[in-house]
């Protein structure tokens, strides 16, 4: 006798159920969202909360009680430190921009297309070595009897006392962050429509005017993004200031480090300083997004 198989269970309705609509995006976004929440949002909130507790140390109860740490951050000494950090970061950004733009321009527009990747690779190569090692190399170059002064000496030039100055810090940081600037500027200039340069010349603009009025504005998003990246990186760098900056090299990053890993362990003050830096950088990014992006006013 033939045994009839049970009818196949009816497949679920082909019409998507309401929750299916957000299930996909949720599945896609959850891992990175969780990652961001745990490793970015939560720590930032913790830092903010700690910053509201004066004199908090490991073992203390977190009991937010005021803005004292912030007032402390703005006393004259700490203000000097913050201003020094900002000016070092600005200086480094300016140097990277001035050195990086011609290089990126050359690679993106003038160099033969087939060589571009090789040239870029050459620029990124220094990033493969340890930043500490690179900084030590600068000590060897800049010290009083170092490579630079030996070189100057052979031409009968007076030696330069560069090591342990702000100039040395700027040199070291510019060297560290120049590749990032070049990469970002390159990707921006690579997209430049060269016909715009011809149009500018056609309308009577000599090369310099074309550069200032067309090339630079067209590359503005890249300039802004590269500058921001270099600025933020410089602001957070404490190896270069520490090793190259000499006796007056206290920066905000090092000050924060001292609050967490130094003797006083004043985590509250360190958190306040961190919050100030996070805010400053966030504002810079917000301004960039609002005004730096040309697409914002185009569409």
């Amino acid at each position: 006798m033939a045994v009839s198989s049970p009818p196949p269970t009816s497949p679920s309705s082909s019409e998507p159920r309401p929750q299916a609509r957000w299930l996909g995006p949720l599945a896609l976004l959850a891992p990175s969202g969780l990652w961001l929440l745990l490793l970015l949002v939560l720590p930032t909130l913790v830092i903010f909360q700690l910053s509201l507790v004066p004199n908090i140390r490991p073992g203390d109860v977190v009991n937010p009680s005021g803005l004292d740490n912030y007032w402390l951050a703005f006393n004259s000494t700490n203000l000097t430190v913050i201003v020094r950090s900002l000016s070092l970061a600005l200086g480094t950004t300016a140097v990277c921009l001035l050195l990086g733009f011609p290089v990126a321009y050359w690679i993106a527009i003038l160099a033969p297309r087939s060589r571009r990747n090789l040239l870029l690779l050459g620029f990124i190569l220094p990033l493969w070595t340890s930043s500490l090692l690179r900084t030590y190399a600068w000590i060897t170059i800049l010290r009083p009897t170092g490579v630079l002064n030996t070189f100057l000496g052979t031409f009968g030039l007076p030696p330069l006392e560069l090591l342990n100055t702000s100039a040395a810090v700027t040199i070291g940081m510019s060297y560290s962050f120049l590749p990032y600037m070049v990469l970002i500027l390159y990707s921006s200039l690579e997209k430049l429509d060269t016909q715009l340069l011809e149009a500018s010349a056609d309308l009577g603009a000599p090369p310099l005017q074309t550069f200032l009025k067309i090339t630079v504005p067209q590359a503005l998003p890249g300039i802004a993004a590269g500058s921001l990246l270099v600025f933020i990186s410089s602001l957070g760098d404490f190896i270069d200031p520490e090793l190259l900056g000499g006796a007056s090299s206290m920066t905000a990053a090092r000050l924060i480090y001292n609050q967490f890993l130094g003797q006083t362990q004043n985590w509250g003050f360190g958190s306040a300083l961190s919050t100030i830096l996070i805010l400053a950088v966030s504002i810079a990014i917000a301004l960039l997004l609002k005004y730096g992006d040309r697409d914002a006013y185009r569409s």
């Binding site: 490793l39 700690l50 073992g59 090793l243 924060i256």
Partner: peptide, 23 residues
């Protein structure tokens, strides 16, 4: 000291998200 990473500091802050900076 330069081996010290700021990672240690942020790790320290992260682990302290209880209401005490407990050991």
């Amino acid at each position: 000291f330069l081996n010290a990473s700021l990672g240690a500091a942020s790790g320290a802050a992260l682990s302290s998200c209880g209401w005490t900076l407990a050991n």
